[in-house]
Design a protein around this nucleic acid. Sequence first.
DNA 1: AGTTGACCTTGACGTAACGTCAAGATTTAT
DNA 2: ATAAATCTTGACGTTACGTCAAGGTCAACT
Lengths: 251, 251
Amino acid sequence: MDHSIQDIARLAGTTSRTLRHYGAEGLLPPSRVAANGYRYYDDRALVRLQRILLLRELGLGLPAIRAVLDRETDEAAALRAHLGWLEQEQQRLQRQIRSVHTTITALEGKDQLMAETMFDGFDHSIHKEEVEQRWGADAYASGDSWWRDMTAAQRAQWQATTAALQADWRDAAERQVAPDGTEAQQLAGRHVQWLDAVPGIPRENGRPAAAYVRGLGEMYVADDRFAAHYGGQAGAGFVRDALAVYAARTL
Amino acid sequence: MDHSIQDIARLAGTTSRTLRHYGAEGLLPPSRVAANGYRYYDDRALVRLQRILLLRELGLGLPAIRAVLDRETDEAAALRAHLGWLEQEQQRLQRQIRSVHTTITALEGKDQLMAETMFDGFDHSIHKEEVEQRWGADAYASGDSWWRDMTAAQRAQWQATTAALQADWRDAAERQVAPDGTEAQQLAGRHVQWLDAVPGIPRENGRPAAAYVRGLGEMYVADDRFAAHYGGQAGAGFVRDALAVYAARTL
DNA sequence: AGTTGACCTTGACGTAACGTCAAGATTTAT
DNA sequence: ATAAATCTTGACGTTACGTCAAGGTCAACT
């Protein structure tokens, strides 16, 4: 009927330190304390512990959890309040991410560019530093050699594809198409397919990695030289949003 | 040439406590300390302080900032490393948000439903508790009375519109359309327009609030009764993603 | 009985970046 | 001369435990 502190800790997937902490906080007192001071917990305590751990995984603090378990607060209400906080945090992070992106771009704006011809066809590895640090030196090197080893005709072909894609993006952006709409999402699909032809980019289960695609979109916005290809700030923002939706949905 | 501690604090938009903290950490020592112990900072210190605060807003920790300012680390490299952390945090939050949503739905699954007829036409306010707590009692009440005051013909009209929209969503989902593509985004546009016809929903500058639209999408996924209208889990996930992209891009 | 582990206890420091008193010294204004 | 500002150092609080540290307790083995 009783379990030692290590026992329930293992049963619930936590540590004895956590159990003692919850005991000290009055959140989960031992169901019995032996004469020698040893803590013992019964099955009801185990159930309570599991509820606590569940709520903790959702991000609730111990005071909020106590209020819920002691029925001082409605659980759903507490979770909805918590949801608001989570969403705010997420937005704050989103803003920080964008600021960091633009800061990086501003810092490196005038450093190592790849050759101009390359710029038009291989825009995603123009930032040598960024590609190497975030996706590994291989990503840059293999993309680089892939491009260099192309024949002139292959390169021209590739540039034509790229130009057409960019033109369609600009067109859609001008027409104020919704970035999560079918048309934009089809463009995003083409964009990812185009990307997929480049060896060495980071992938997940065979497809370009979602984080990479999103990062690419942010880069288009952060760097005016890219933005120009997609119709300026507004157009690049559109591309970024479309890629983000696409990545969320299908990658 | 010199400023007192309060002076630069005001100039830089921070507090004297922070200045002392940075001094104690060796991150920004006072440029001069008078015989009486008073700290004084010159213009170079002000510049350094401003850089520190900028990096802090981007979320960097003090050790990372020190490394950058002391030129032990490349600033862009530090920011890219930081970017990876930010993106991970964002994903963790996203997972928590979804878990909270499904938990809330599971908790309230069988409580207060609106009438069945209402269910088919007014799905976004079916969760009385959720709507009231997160968007205010007015949101629920005005939506509720709007619906109740309709004539039978008006209601039938509305339900037909709703059903058509849902059918198009199911169709697009089945065809594996990309959620950030043009087609899905057009559907999202229709969805928001449809929503916009309901009085009392939360708005921002005249249009349905982005957070509300996103929340709606999450609800479709979290609640099987909604999901059913959009083609089950997969379909609802598609709708959610499409709405999220749409919200990000145009709301 | 003595010893060896395995397990238990309480106690206390560390974490990130300051916010917030508190007590006392100094400068500035009246 | 006195009051009001401003300055100093010192220290606790914040969140949920992780991580020693020093020292009891218990079952098993010699």
